[in-house]
Design a protein around this nucleic acid. Structure first.
Lengths: 201, 201, 201, 201
DNA sequence: CAATAAACGAGACGGTACGTCCCGTCTTCAG
DNA sequence: CTGAAGACGGGACGTACCGTCTCGTTTATTG
């Protein structure tokens, strides 16, 4: 029991993975993605910027997409807490504002868009994208809605998953297809139009 | 006026553009996009399949993306009429059903997704995408909403553009990020939850 | 007759192969092989020096070895005539002198050595090497010997092929294993010691 | 004596493990060189086969070539005695037969060829090759010739070194450039044609 | 009915990045 | 301290397409 704790196969052998390397690679990736579009960033560019050999990158990441995803996600690591103001409406509004703020950092918006695209032709990537990043954000929305149901604010039969699609959909739509503003006005509009359909009649 | 009819600068000289060629290229593109992912289809593949030289493709289309977009759009050419049942709710429902049906044809869904991705790093493409294809669909929704306003079903101050974001957003969201079903149930869910926020209080 | 002359399959289609390219590649190869060792010359170096893309090289030559062989052989293209002085001894002496002179040009000696090595692990290359370059030189020696036999200078039963091995062997030996001088003295020594074993008793 | 011989795990304070290592590395090298061409064997392959880390190899051998040379030479370690039959002709014949026999073992022939090639671009290796392996074999031939001179069979002024070139040259020539048989017939031919030029007139 | 001009097939070409292989060096840990 | 395990920087490999560029051929219109 105590021993098994150490990992799957005991002590690591050989030279340990360099944390500096990992950091340099992620940093270089983030920088380059902020400077240019995803498509214009090559693995060779990243290697050069990070002062690392290509092989080291290929050793730890299977593709540019996975690397970009990780680099992009690291930015959102200092995760915001789940809003809890007392009403579903205020909670959702705050949630949207935080999401918008995140997407405004650097080139995140365009990068995420490219990753979504990439994931259309890479099922493995799509899976990770959905299960790790999309799911994480949905869980926050789900918590808010479930609290609303528990509180009696929303009806018991609410289809939480589907409501989340209505909540998040408009964000990605503007971001990907319309190149529209993700601002406070839009956040308020979404919530204002969603609430009447949600509340107990 | 009468002269302008022939084209921008008089009569065409030389050998006219081969319609067979154009058709063969579009057909080959459609076929290949149905067989593989967008990323796995190269211009050289298309040329080979169409029995055409690369140059001929480059002559008429600036990029694989534009070509794919045209091939994909041709599928929706036999365009549905704007629904007009008498109520906004029924109109919107029918609209969504028609959109869903289109996206189920062949590999359209994945291809559109890839094009959206591509357009993130190609402003020219993004512009065309937005102005031609997205706008065309939005106009239908806008017409429905405006009729509702005229009819007094919806309040006069309705922000039509923003409402359309709420309407179309959830579709693309499921399609791109969730890989979820675009079925009748979803169409009804969207409309049902949207209406309370729209109707005159 | 007149038509068949044009080639195996009529007119060549598409853009014709650039003779400038071919020349530039061979020139670059020769230059680089004179500057450095065979092992230190990469296809990428050659491409860079020739101002040509790697692909163009790979299109026409299957390997660095074949390219080097061709470049090296081009140097000996202005081929010397078969000596014909009247005696086998004088003919062979002149032959050796000419061979030595060729091997002294640029870095030929080291390059041929590397090609011989390479051909040990590349049967295709070995075949070409033997059939094209080695055979061409042996043919000259064979002619000299056969004239000697016809003239009655050498016995009728002389094993020409084996004698050629005795003639050429010592050259390559000095060149490859001993790094010894290929000078006039050596040429005379070889011939002087070979003749007694050859002449009619 | 008997105890020390015992094996790898006899004495706790016994011989250092390095001899086992050395043996394993040489064995692996020999095996791999017999299975594939020199070029197709990498240091990493050898390390893997020997169950040894790369570093251990680099610690003792500066290059794959040196290692291969040693492994290849080890095969000839059970060195044949210098022939001494009474006549130069018979001695040389026996010498050639023994050399041929050695070169027929495993892949020796191809490996030596590759080493010769490698030595063209590695002066350090060339030096060792010449001074250690080539010289060792030449010394045997030299001894035979010098005995012949002492015996009065060969003239006093014989240029031993140059004669050795005539003797060994044809071997390597067949081996490297002609891929021809190294058989008894060839041995007899070489000696038979060499002798008339050597013997006192 | 030429002459002209564009469309077209074929394919060579310069270029960029790919993902892989192996080199030789390094860093850590076990015995 | 030796040696295994293996991470790392580096450099070349051979490949895949890109988009451009000649060519020769085909198919219209125009003088």
């Amino acid at each position: 029991m105590a021993l098994a704790d150490g990992g799957p196969c005991g002590r690591p052998r050989g030279r340990p993975r360099s944390t500096e390397c990992t950091a340099a690679i992620l940093r270089a990736t983030t920088e380059l993605l902020d400077e240019r579009t995803y498509a214009a960033v090559s693995i060779e560019d990243i290697a050069a910027r990070a002062g690392v050999s290509k092989q080291t990158i290929y050793k730890w990441w299977p593709s540019k997409a996975k690397l970009a995803m990780e680099a992009c996600a690291a930015r959102a690591a200092d995760s915001y807490p789940i809003p809890d103001t007392g009403t579903v409406e205020a909670d959702l509004l705050q949630l949207l504002r935080e999401v918008f703020a995140l997407l405004r950092r650097g080139n995140s918006r365009a990068t995420w868009a490219s990753l979504i695209a990439e994931s259309q032709s890479d099922p493995e990537l799509a899976k990770e994208f959905r299960e790790t990043y999309v799911a994480a954000r949905r869980r926050i929305g789900a918590t808010i809605l479930e609290r609303g149901i528990a509180r009696g604010e929303l009806p018991a039969g609410t289809d939480v998953e589907a409501v989340l699609d209505l909540l998040y959909g408009p964000i990605w739509y503007r971001m990907l297809l319309r190149n529209g503003a993700l601002d406070d006005k839009y956040a308020r509009f979404i919530v204002a139009h969603l609430m009447p359909g949600l509340l107990r009649r």
